[in-house]
């Protein structure tokens, strides 16, 4: 299934770097968005007085 290559470590590490960078391009927006949404929800709750203060 997995092709047998000469210089396999070089080829696979290249594709590994590519995969990591692509994964980061997908993940970064998702993670950032989650954090942003949490912040926005908190701000909204603060404004509408529904803020559930964890340390009253």
């Amino acid at each position: 299934m997995i092709p047998e290559l000469e210089y396999a470590s070089f080829v696979w590490s290249s594709y590994g770097i590519f995969a990591v960078v692509v994964a980061w391009q997908i993940l970064q927006p998702v993670l950032y968005r989650r954090r942003l949404m949490a912040e926005l929800r908190e701000e909204q709750a603060l404004q509408s007085g529904e803020y559930d203060d964890p340390n009253p």
């Binding site: 290559l5 000469e6 070089f10 080829v11 290249s14």
Partner: peptide, 16 residues
């Protein structure tokens, strides 16, 4: 197929 000079490293170029 692998390149006759670069053999399988030529496959790196498909992302490079």
């Amino acid at each position: 197929p692998p390149d006759y000079q670069q053999s399988d490293t030529v496959r790196i170029l498909y992302i490079h």
